[in-house]
Amino acid sequence: MNPATVRRLNEWTVSVLRTILLIGICYIILLPLINRLSTALMSVEDLYDQSVRWIPRNPTFRNFQLVWVHMEYVKAFTNSFLLALTTSVLQVASCTLVGYGLARFRFPGNGLIFGAAIFTLIVPPQLVIVPMYLNFRFFNFMGLLGENSINLIGTYWPFILTSLTGTGFRNGLYIFIMRQFFRGMPRELEEAAFIDGAGLFRTFFRVMLPGSVPGLIVAFLFSFVWQWNDYLYVTTFMSNRTFLPQALEAAPGRIGRMLSQTDALASSSGFLDNHFYSLINNAGMLLIILPLLILYIFMQRHFVESIERTGIVG
């Protein structure tokens, strides 16, 4: 064989191996999603039937119907969407400002503030959730209002206040991302804008911000997804309102009660067991993930491309 053939053969082997490997990994990644979809479409008989593995024998949308109604999906979706959108927009805004301040200004305390931002990341939320609850329950600006504290629990304020100040869930990470992003932008841009007579904030909004869109997208996507899936904060600060996670948690119980009242056979035959609730849970989880999947499909191109350009590397 001549050297050219050997090289072509080599390249061909590498690409075949790579393809097999990638398909295998993608299979493992997609497995839970496919599992969930196939389970959610099954009827209870299918779940008991050992010969049914992937494709339901009696496919049904009944699980989705039940969970849609009993989660009060439209209401819960609206609540979750509004909360996730508000917090992520505010968080990205504040973290961008802070990230820019840390990236481009030398001032005493710069390193200390950056360290503080990273420090907020390593504290488990469970440690501070009770004091935070109490602070918002008896909110008095650290004692300024004295005895006349305000109850902010059950309102959007805990989310708005922590988001505005860049201290919400994992906000240290967004500060880190934005800081690294701004550090990677050419210094000349700013200086040119300043020489042309733009002030600090005009330089930021007109020159730096438009250039940082890829970084903003990454931070926004993380922020939106984590708020959407959040369970700890919504149940602590706004237990009076139903968001998607709580709605899903309540749904199986409601469906069980409803069925045991209307369908005597179902309740007496032991039909309402773990298998049945598992179908409901799977359908419900898909309904929670679905909006995120749609969002991701629209943003993934920007997401993957921009992560490369954010230069998280430093």
Partner: peptide, 15 residues
């Protein structure tokens, strides 16, 4: 630098 990072500094102490 102080102005841009001020929101976080306040939040860090308060929240």
């Amino acid at each position: 630098g102080f102005l841009f990072t001020l929101p976080f500094v306040i939040g860090f102490f308060l929240f």
